[in-house]
C-alpha cells in the first residue's frame, strides 16, 4: 500500500512540477540560498507578482 501511495505521490509531484506548482518553494529556496537580507515575498504576493510579470512577457504555446 505504501508503495502505491508513494507512486501516486511521485506522479502528482511530477505533474505539479510540469505545471509549475512548486514555483514558490523554489523561489524560497533561491531566496535562502542567495543570502538575501530582506524577507521573501509571501505566497500570495509571489503568485500575484508571477502572474503580473507574465502579462508583460507572454510565452508562446505551440500548435
Amino acid at each position: 500500500m505504501n508503495a502505491v501511495l508513494a507512486g501516486i505521490r511521485g506522479v502528482a509531484g511530477y505533474l505539479g512540477g510540469v505545471l509549475g506548482a512548486d514555483a514558490y518553494t523554489k523561489y524560497l529556496a533561491h531566496h535562502d540560498a542567495s543570502g538575501h537580507t530582506g524577507p521573501p515575498l509571501t505566497e500570495r504576493e509571489f503568485w500575484r507578482d508571477r502572474a503580473d510579470r507574465q502579462d508583460t512577457t507572454p510565452q508562446g504555446r505551440c500548435c
Partner: peptide, 16 residues
C-alpha cells in the same frame, strides 16, 4: 532569480 531563471529537474523540464 528564483522566478524566470530557475534550475529545473531535467525530467520535469522534459514534461514542461
Amino acid at each position: 532569480d528564483g522566478k524566470d531563471y530557475v534550475r529545473t529537474d531535467r525530467n520535469v523540464l522534459f514534461g514542461h
